[in-house]
Design a protein around this nucleic acid. Structure first.
Lengths: 334, 334
DNA sequence: GCCGTGAGATGATTCGTTTCAGTCGTGAGA
DNA sequence: TCTCACGACTGAAACGAATCATCTCACGGC
């Protein structure tokens, strides 16, 4: 493996000069630079990032931990983050916690060992102490799609309470009275907030009943199972609307409804959350709360880099975007 | 930032002993180990991976470059790879080339600088020399979802020619005669092979016409645009079936067909490729060629680790899986 | 009392890069 | 002629962990 030393020898200069060619080309004479570059190409020299990092003390990478890589919402967030990070010469390390706090912790460990420039995380649990520890060690942390209860971290989120409320208000306006909220676990803050918003909207009208149907994860499968149980009930006890905690669950809910012979929106209305691309291509296109996924990702990187460049006296900032209701045939007949 | 030296001082031992506690616990006395571990917790010591790597010469990470993170097929591949890698203590660095050879090259550079343990790549282009260079520098390379023309690399692929052929044979059997293959660019091997397979199947029956409708990328949007142009033709020139290069394109094709007032499968049959989860939840559930995505990912890691542990005399291996036709309502009325 | 043995601990050295104080030589100004 | 400034380049030190040839010590055997 060829090192700067080899390049230096080949070009007849010192290692310091090779380093300058690589990092501060303005400090070196044109003719020297040419010789060094020729040697680099000749020998096939590739910088060793580990040595670079060791010297620098931190890496040029940013860790991103998402709840589910299979969810297009999060890949969109990742895309936004990656683009923004790339502009500043940073790269994104993507970790998938699959809603497991164990996996989440192991990614945090990994990222800490890598002396990552910072961590963007959509937490699976409420383990804020763990995050504080990371920050105490000098690694900035920004919460994604979630706010810190005590505002001790910067965050980029969408107002999930408002979103939950708007979704249920839409269902009420279109005539539904028995609404089921499908999703879980509530240890995921997004779920808890959307449910809270839904409850607020429901509580404003005495004739509206809101039922919480928990699931163990936010997947298509979970949506199918929970909804299948709902629609198997006697018609008099069956909800007339499902508000799903995210679009994967809502897709599952739609499948279960169709399998049971129900025809949305008449027999059952369905609202999802995230407005992933696939929500508009389903058998019955799904009404959903749209979130600006890529913008969330890029804003998170902004906040992170800001915090990283400032240091001690940094004041955490909360950015909150508003979700937007996208109405489709799963709630309103076309 | 606390280092092994600080831990050693706090525990009253040498740095070598701390390192032994971390890496070869069997060599150190129980009482010593306890003291060291206590010091580690006390001081909040976190190993510096850069220093570790520098010493070791290579990292415990494997780079994975995919064509499109937004495509669930690739996230499934990534999942499979990550799981398998994790079992051996490796982590996966996920890079998204977005079908751009420029982005692909920049990820390769990054991974080389990181002295990655190996690279799994679903190449966007035919730049094999670049890959050979990486391997010459000691970085094993395994091709994913694609075979090397000269078998000079190990690979895990699915027989796309057979897949393309089976898809078109299915269309012919169900009565279609004017078939459009939608997708591109053909510089992506998967596209070229699926098209080649389609042509073979079509050529076996004189009365079948196959038309190639290129797109610039494999996305829902591209599928919509290409198909919209097709269905806008006079009925006598309109194809009676679309074979899409992947499911994202087929979802786009379905949207365009519905928007034009056509009702699959009668007015237009549609076959996709990959059988992503969302293929069965579309307005008209999509017939698709299923590929064992997670298995592809884990097998690729297997081959990579095998090659990495052997070294020089390694013989590239080709693993080829067979795709499986999954018939749904987009080709056969229910 | 001596030697051999082996468990346990040591600490100097190494990995490859960046940085920075310092050297060298040239040319302008006094 | 001497000094000073400056551009160009040098090379040693430092980053933090892992390794391995050595060293220490206690104990058993004779």
């Amino acid at each position: 493996m060829v090192s700067v030393r080899d390049v230096a020898v080949a070009a007849g200069v010192s290692v310091g000069t090779v380093s300058n060619v690589l990092n501060r080309p303005d400090l070196v004479a044109a003719s020297t630079m040419e010789r060094v570059n020729a040697a680099i190409v000749d020998l096939g020299f590739v910088r060793n990032d580990a040595a670079r990092q060791l010297r620098a003390g931190r890496s040029r990478s940013i860790g991103l931990i998402v709840l589910d890589v299979g969810n297009p919402f999060f890949t969109d967030v990742a895309r936004g983050a990656e683009k923004r990070a790339g502009d500043d010469g940073f790269s994104i390390l993507l970790g998938n916690s699959d809603e497991s706090s164990v996996r989440e912790a192991s990614y945090l460990d990994l990222f800490e060992e890598q002396r990552v420039h910072g961590v963007l995380i959509s937490p699976a649990s409420d383990d804020l102490p763990r995050l504080h520890r990371a920050r105490d060690r000098g690694i900035p942390v920004v919460l994604v799609d979630r706010e810190a209860p005590d505002r001790s971290f910067s965050s980029v989120a969408v107002d999930d309470i408002a979103g939950g409320r708007a979704a249920v208000e839409h269902l009420i306006e279109t005539g539904r009275r028995r609404i089921a909220f499908v999703g879980g676990p509530t240890s995921i803050r997004q779920v808890a907030d959307r449910l809270a918003g839904a409850r607020i909207a429901a509580s404003e009208r005495a004739e509206v009943a809101l039922e919480y149907v928990p699931t163990s994860s936010l997947t298509v499968r979970a949506g199918v199972e929970a909804t299948a149980a709902l629609v198997a009930r006697h018609p008099s006890h069956r909800p007339d609307a499902v508000f799903a905690a995210n679009d994967l669950v809502s897709i599952g809910a739609l499948q279960a409804a169709l399998a049971a012979g129900l025809r949305p929106p008449d027999d059952l209305a369905i609202v999802g959350y995230d407005d992933i691309d696939f929500a508009e291509t389903t058998t019955v296109p799904l009404t959903s709360m749209r979130q600006p996924a890529a913008l969330i990702g890029s804003t998170a990187v902004d906040l992170l880099l800001g915090e990283a460049s400032q240091g001690e006296g940094f004041e955490p900032q909360q950015v909150v975007y508003q979700p937007e209701l996208v109405v489709r045939e799963s709630t309103v007949a076309s």
